[in-house]
Design a binder for these strands. Structure first.
Length: 141
DNA sequence: TTTCTCACA
DNA sequence: TGTGAGAA
């Protein structure tokens, strides 16, 4: 199938499908006219890519893990297991945990600043944010 | 319709 | 990570 067909079947834009190829996530063969020719299995492949991206995995890792999963009867992505797969996933798990720690530290610093700014108000996150939308888009009439 | 590339958020 | 535009 051509790129437009795959885009229609998966709901992923043609532009994004080309981007996935560029990142090594899809390997369509080429027709003599240069057009990409995708296999039926690429429909599931795109679903797997979306699922892994949603799990926070970077494309470089997804490229390695893509051959380590398959679909069960109900189109659920299940790992088949590859050497290094668990290591990769654990590493990503740790990276995300570190990122959460970093964000929590930022949040605490901002909470502290806001607490000072509000003069000791109990919960710095309870104060409504200032309304910056007035006089901007969407209000013409 | 599709390709590729550059620029950008 | 993902998009838009432009030229072929």
């Amino acid at each position: 199938m051509k790129i437009g067909d795959l885009a229609r079947e998966t709901g992923v834009s043609r532009r994004l499908l080309r981007y996935y190829e560029e990142q090594g996530l899809l390997r369509p063969r080429r027709l003599p006219n240069g057009y990409r020719e995708y296999a039926e299995a690429d429909v599931a492949g795109v679903r797997h890519i979306r699922a892994m991206l949603a799990a926070g995995l970077p494309t470089a890792v997804i490229a390695r893990l893509l051959d380590c999963v398959h679909d069960d009867d109900s189109e659920r992505m299940v790992p088949t297991g590859c050497p290094g797969m668990v290591t990769d996933l654990r590493h990503e798990q740790q990276r995300i945990a570190d990122e959460i720690d970093r964000l929590r530290t930022s949040q605490e610093a901002l909470d502290s600043l806001l607490t000072s700014a509000l003069g000791g108000n109990a919960d710095p996150r309870s104060e409504p944010a200032p309304n910056r939308s007035r006089g901007q888009i969407g209000l013409r009439s």
